[in-house]
Write a protein that binds this DNA or RNA. Structure first.
Lengths: 225, 225
DNA sequence: CTTAATATACTTGTATACAAGTATATTACG
DNA sequence: CGTAATATACTTGTATACAAGTATATTAAG
């Protein structure tokens, strides 16, 4: 597991949570792999308590499975789980961008504009690795504009199911097209054009389509069913 | 706080969680009220650890606010939070009932039919207190039919924000009309009539409309803003 | 009496010890 | 050698002790 640096103000629990999420998303912690509270606490140089609290939270999001007195395991990729996450993201993103069209104001425009401009800048400089983080932030900002930021937070951990499968996909290179999507979304929101905005969300998410069969053939041991 | 009976197989953590949820929903634990891990563990006759773990989970759902070294408090009613929960329930219920229309089969019909029949029976006998639980189960069953039960689970804790405000409302007596709603929803799903089903969800949720002003004037100290 | 300094009694965060149960390795037996 | 009984070394669940910080009560000074 890749151990990140602990921020000085960060609680041990938040630290453990951050490290675990990152490693599950990046598949450094592999689906099906056993993890132990004791091992992790040794590795992170904190006690069992905060590690355990982080594990419990991830178990609530079905990212870890806890079998009492037997062990805890990184959840296998469950196609049903992935589908529920995708479904939830689609309906929520759609409704939220519509609301954003209603709620957008000068402040919101600035928030989104700054982000997209930066994405375009990094794209033009070929610094595509910077775009990933801005991509996530852009989606969060739309929720903020729509005054639905709690929903974003609540769903964020669940979306790891979706995102880690994406990370297994070979064809994640076409990421540069998303910057154009974001620009178009922003313009639609500014124009309060709900119909176009919703179409863009649909188009945008279709880029994240995953070829389950292909991934499954490469890594069958990662899958639940 | 009303302490429930602990099931023999239930872990101490699940027990604490169940008791806390129930008391927050019923407003036995009042918004803004201070709670202490030590007090609760004494009251529930379990140690601090499982109580603490339950509190952390509820804090993640914004039902409890933890201020380190100062104390933990039942969250005040936050209109933004209530609105986000209502928004989420509406869009999710809508999308899920459409999916249920696609996925319904004999087994699903039986599941829903058994529930609604029982509701109708209790209604005819005037045993309206039994209907509350069946109401929740009916909604969950629709998610099950639509193969979206994880989404139901993930959202259930969040919906307490919405439901506890409903419990403060005087006009919750018109509950008997929901049985008719449920019958109509079931028939729409059986007929795979998405348009009608969605209209019914909308109509159904409109019954849960809350008069914030009225509640606020009765209990202003419960509100955040 | 007022005000400031100091205890005191809380709070949650973390570390650790023990309890209860599981799975594997080891040992003893046939 | 094969099989069953028994240790052994894990696992997570729970209880408890201590650490660090906050808010209030108490005390002392002016």
């Amino acid at each position: 597991m890749k151990v990140l640096n602990k921020y000085s103000r960060e609680t041990a629990r938040d630290f453990a949570l951050r490290v675990l999420k990152e490693n599950i998303l990046s598949l450094e912690l592999k689906p099906g792999m056993a993890i132990s509270e004791n091992e992790l606490s040794a590795e992170l140089k904190i006690s069992r308590t905060p590690v355990r609290e982080a594990i419990i939270e991830l178990a609530k999001a079905y990212l870890i499975e806890i079998y009492p007195q037997r062990g805890s395991f990184i959840s296998l990729i469950d196609p049903k789980m992935v589908e529920e996450a995708r479904f939830l993201r689609k309906i929520t993103d759609t409704a939220v961008i519509e609301t954003a069209c209603d709620e957008i104001d000068e402040e919101g425009i600035k928030l989104l504009e700054d982000n997209v401009s930066l994405q375009e800048y990094y794209l033009s400089k070929g610094m595509t690795d910077k775009i990933f983080e801005l991509d996530n932030q852009f989606h969060k900002d739309i929720y903020v504009v729509a005054k639905k930021d709690i929903i974003y937070e609540i769903h964020s951990t669940l979306m790891i199911h979706f995102d880690r499968v994406r990370n297994l996909s070979v064809a994640t290179v076409k990421d540069f097209k998303v910057v154009g999507d974001h620009r178009n979304m922003l313009e639609a929101i500014k124009a309060r054009d709900k119909k176009t905005a919703v179409e863009l969300v649909d188009k945008h998410l279709s880029r994240y389509q995953i070829d389950e069969k292909e991934i499954r053939s490469k890594k069958p041991e990662y899958f639940k069913v």
